[in-house]
């Protein structure tokens, strides 16, 4: 940086005057300064280095030549157990204990759990299983074989652990969702599947008088504000 600044500061007028040139001296005087400015500009441009932008560290899932599989995010070494993840309670973690599907819901069952289940169901299950669980989701219209409907006697009577087992280990052509849906959410979804089953299998006698009136008056139902479709 020192040299260009010296050029800028150097007063050249004296020497030009001495030479007795016809060219206006101030123009001549500007020439070296102009050159200095150009040089400064060029230096500023070469200053555009990207070292801070592209730091020598890896971001999640970045590629690397260092490892044979080209993954900077290293898979856990087999047998690694994260704190609190020993998963001794196989019933909770897989829906199955000693080869038997869990019968009892292992978490406190609250409205929040059911709402969480609905939310997760609509993200991960609804594309194939359909919003009401008839196995008619949008992917089915694109050529997927119908997944089974939840509204069959076999599935109504299946233990709650069955659904968690299917989500955890997959079933038939359905792959495992364990890597995408944490176990707590899998149980929440299972609870919501029970809600769906109940919603499609209510006897008229189980309804209150008011609810029955609603069902019997379709025009009243149509006038109700439509529930917003899950996005």
């Amino acid at each position: 940086m020192r040299i260009p600044f010296l050029l800028l500061l150097r007063n050249t007028r004296k020497t030009d005057r001495a030479r007795g040139s016809d060219t206006p001296v101030f123009l001549k005087a500007m020439a070296p300064r102009g050159a200095a400015f150009a040089l400064l500009g060029a230096l500023a441009l070469t200053g555009c280095r990207q070292d801070m932008h592209d730091q020598p560290r890896y971001r999640p899932f970045a590629a690397t030549d260092f490892f044979g599989d080209r993954r900077a995010s290293r898979p856990a070494i087999p047998g690694t157990v994260a704190r609190g993840m020993l998963k001794t309670d196989t019933g909770y973690w897989t829906g199955k204990a000693a080869g038997k599907e869990v019968e009892r819901y292992p978490l406190p069952l609250t409205r929040e759990v059911l709402e969480r289940g609905r939310d997760r169901f609509n993200i991960y299950c609804q594309p194939c299983h359909g919003a009401a669980g008839y196995g008619n989701g949008i992917i089915v219209t694109r050529g997927l074989k119908n997944p089974p409907s939840y509204h069959t006697d076999a599935l109504r009577e299946a233990p709650i652990g069955h659904f968690v087992d299917v989500m955890t280990n997959g079933s038939g052509s359905m792959l495992s969702y364990a890597s995408r849906v944490p176990v707590r959410d899998r149980w929440a979804i299972a609870a919501y599947i029970r809600v769906l089953q109940q919603s499609q299998n209510v006897k008229a006698g189980d309804l209150s008088a008011e609810e029955r009136q609603k069902v019997n008056a379709p025009e009243a139902r149509a006038a109700e504000p439509k529930k917003e479709a899950a996005h």
Binding site: G143, K145, L175
Partner: peptide
Amino acid sequence: ATETCMSCHTMIW
């Protein structure tokens, strides 16, 4: 994960 793609694409396309 590739598993996510294959959740559908083992069966369609």
